[in-house]
Design a protein around this nucleic acid. Sequence first.
DNA 1: GTGGTCTAGACCACC
DNA 2: GTGGTCTAGACCACA
Lengths: 129, 129, 129, 129
Amino acid sequence: MEEIFDENQPIYLQIVQRICAQILRGEFKPGDKLPAVIDAAMRFKVNHNTIHRAYLELIRQGIAVTRRGEGTFVTADQSVLDELHHRMRKTFLEDFIRQMRQLGFTNADIIETLQSYLQSANSKEEKQS
Amino acid sequence: MEEIFDENQPIYLQIVQRICAQILRGEFKPGDKLPAVIDAAMRFKVNHNTIHRAYLELIRQGIAVTRRGEGTFVTADQSVLDELHHRMRKTFLEDFIRQMRQLGFTNADIIETLQSYLQSANSKEEKQS
Amino acid sequence: MEEIFDENQPIYLQIVQRICAQILRGEFKPGDKLPAVIDAAMRFKVNHNTIHRAYLELIRQGIAVTRRGEGTFVTADQSVLDELHHRMRKTFLEDFIRQMRQLGFTNADIIETLQSYLQSANSKEEKQS
Amino acid sequence: MEEIFDENQPIYLQIVQRICAQILRGEFKPGDKLPAVIDAAMRFKVNHNTIHRAYLELIRQGIAVTRRGEGTFVTADQSVLDELHHRMRKTFLEDFIRQMRQLGFTNADIIETLQSYLQSANSKEEKQS
DNA sequence: GTGGTCTAGACCACC
DNA sequence: GTGGTCTAGACCACA
């Protein structure tokens, strides 16, 4: 399982994003222990300092806390996670709409394109299964 | 007009994307001359080296060509631009869908959320006008 | 009673300081038995190893002695305690003066600021009572 | 000029404190450029990453900002610096008072001790000059 | 030249 | 075992 990172963005931020997504999908629940720095480093095939920096960013955002000598844990404060979910959803939507408008799409175009793309992707998946 | 760039991604790539979008929206037509490096540097408020690098990337992708002593021009080959349009559209769609799925959204969720977001944005714009 | 420690300094040294202060205030007299490691660990809400390390440091400095099978005791040698009192007082004074000078305070400023701060703190305490 | 750091506190935090003090004493004025990371690393005889981390902390606190490819600068916002000055002054005062009370000093004792200490220090300096 | 990121490897404090 | 700090050295984006 080779981890692939975008060359043009800091690895530690991409790791932050992935862990956020895992938390929001419920793979890590509030209060859960995150993987040890050294384990995560092996899993992502990066240096432990890079994981440490990603965890620092999560802590800075209030998404995680560390307990001395025990590990790093997802915050138990659900409201922080709700806020995070809302913020990420908004960012993704706005970026997408902005990008599609840059290409000259109207609102109706955007929805239509998305629908047909999802349908064609669906049928591909059905074929594969 | 302050230009805003994402701190965590190379500026020259962000400029490449914006120029591509301008071309695809028809603001620059096939064969048109792109702004001189020095002018674009002033417009984007960045160092001229950064613009130069962005133009190099456009040339590498076949989207622009330089004619010595005259400047940098959008390619006259419409097929390249069509290909570009298709590729960017695909990237934007795939990134968006991937991100929303990371948050736990199903295909139906994604379309619904997008629709309601566009509607609420619309009504806001109507109020403003 | 939640014990609060400075995150950026070893806990065992902070505990050493607190125990020294207790001794110098007379809460533990020369020859008195210090709390058992396990009790102190509960009181400070830290791991017993941390207390053990703090006691080792006290012993190293000659402030405490262990009698095998009996426990750890404050030294009966008053001169050691006098020396300790003098040393801590000097350290606190010098650190404080150095810090205030770093902020640009003159000697007169320091005394004046301290006086007014103590007065305002006093009046607050009176109000509360 | 050998730089000396307290073994028991992270070097990067001690550097943060020193730079803060320099700013508050007016050695760096609002908007001034701080030394380049590499220069500061040589001056403090530490690794450049350590300086980088110290600067990150200054940035996090709003005391400094960095301009891409140009350097790191003291914030031009005087109010942030005023707030910083007030906060450091309060911390130093409270720590000192708390420590002296731990040794059994009353408010009057503290002031008296400080005054006599400053006087004796003064006369020493006079002798030296 | 200036800051930002990453790796490899070491040592320490705490549980 | 867990996180925190530090060094040495490398490469990159930007001005």
